[in-house]
Nucleic acid binder design. Sequence first.
DNA 1: CATCGCAATGACAACATCGGAATTACGAGG
DNA 2: CCTCGTAATTCCGATGTTGTCATTGCGATG
Lengths: 172, 172
Amino acid sequence: MDLTAHTSHGYSAKLTADVVGITYRQLDYWARTDLVVPSLAKATGSGSRRQYSYANLLELKVIKRLLDSGIKLEKVRSIFDYMRSELQEDISRANLVIDGSNVVCARSDAEFIDVLQRGQGVLNVLPLSNVKQEVDAAIIEFRPSADDTDEEPSDEAHEESAGEFHRAIGES
Amino acid sequence: MDLTAHTSHGYSAKLTADVVGITYRQLDYWARTDLVVPSLAKATGSGSRRQYSYANLLELKVIKRLLDSGIKLEKVRSIFDYMRSELQEDISRANLVIDGSNVVCARSDAEFIDVLQRGQGVLNVLPLSNVKQEVDAAIIEFRPSADDTDEEPSDEAHEESAGEFHRAIGES
DNA sequence: CATCGCAATGACAACATCGGAATTACGAGG
DNA sequence: CCTCGTAATTCCGATGTTGTCATTGCGATG
C-alpha cells in the first residue's frame, strides 16, 4: 500500500491539518512564516488553495511530534534546515538525534547508541519510523473518498494511538 | 572536593545567575513564578536578598540545558514536578528520559537503552553527570573568595565548555 | 546621619505563537 | 449571472517569556 501515490492531486489544507493533527490556524501560520510551504500549490492570494504533498505531511507530523514534546517552534525552524536534506527517503529505519543546534540522522542502531553515549547536552531523539506509520493511518482514517469500512467513524480517539510506552515509563 | 559544603551561606542571585549561565532577569522571573524558589532565603520585599542552595544550582543548570535544547519553559515546569523527587542525590550516573508528559530517571545503562528502544514519540535525553561537573567548575570560576590561581580571569569562554560532541555530530 | 552599592519590585515594551471572528476571493453549479 | 461552499487573508486579542528602566528599600561604611 503506497499512499505516496495519493499525491496525484495532493492534500488540501483542511485535510492536511486533520491528518497531521494540528489546527488549520497553525498550518496557515507555518505556511506564511515559511516553516512548511505546500510543495504542490502555494497560496496566490485570498481564495486560492494550498496543496500539500505527502512529503509535506511527514514534515508536518515530525514538527507536531517535536512540539508535543515541548520543543520551541523557533528551535524546530532551525532543525528543519538540516531535516529537509535528510527527510526525503527511507524514513523507516532512521533515528533523529538533536543536540542544541546540531542534528544528526543515525541510521544504524550502533551509530545511534554511540551518538547517545557521547551526548553532552540534552539530546532530542526522534524515531522516524512510526511517524510514517501514523501519517499513513491518519490518511486512511480521514480519507474523503468512500469505502470507510471502519467501525469508528467518531471524531475522537486520534490521540495516543500507540500507548505501550506510557505504561513502561510510569504516570506523570 | 565537595562544593556542597559551600552552602554555609548559600549563593546570591547575581552569583547564581553567573554560575548557571542565565540572566538575572530570568532567575528573578523563575523565582516569582515559582519555578525555582531559593531554598535558603526567599525574597521578602524590595531590598531583600534571595539565597540559593547548591541543589538549586543543579536544578537551574538542568533548566538551562533544557532551554538551550529548545524545550519550552512551560514543559520544563511540568517536568520538574517529577524532577524534584529524583534530583537530590547520586546525579552522577543517572540519565533523564522525557517523553512528552512522562519522565523517567534511568540509572543503569541497560535500563537506559531499553527505555530508548521503546520510545514512540520524541525522547529528551539528559545525562545528569556533566551537569554537576559544569556547575562545580563554574562555582570555582566565579568564586569571589580569593585564590583565583587560574590563567583565565576573562569573562568570556564560558559557553561550550565541553566541545567533543559537536565534532562528532557535524556542524549546523 | 548621609551616602553608596546591591537587589527586589513594578511598569512598560517587545516578540513569538497562536485562537477567533470578519472579510474577501476563487471555482463550481444552477 | 447569482449563489454557495471553501479557503486565504486581515484584524484583533491573549498568553508566556523575556529585556529595559526607574523606583524602592535594605545593609554597611564613612
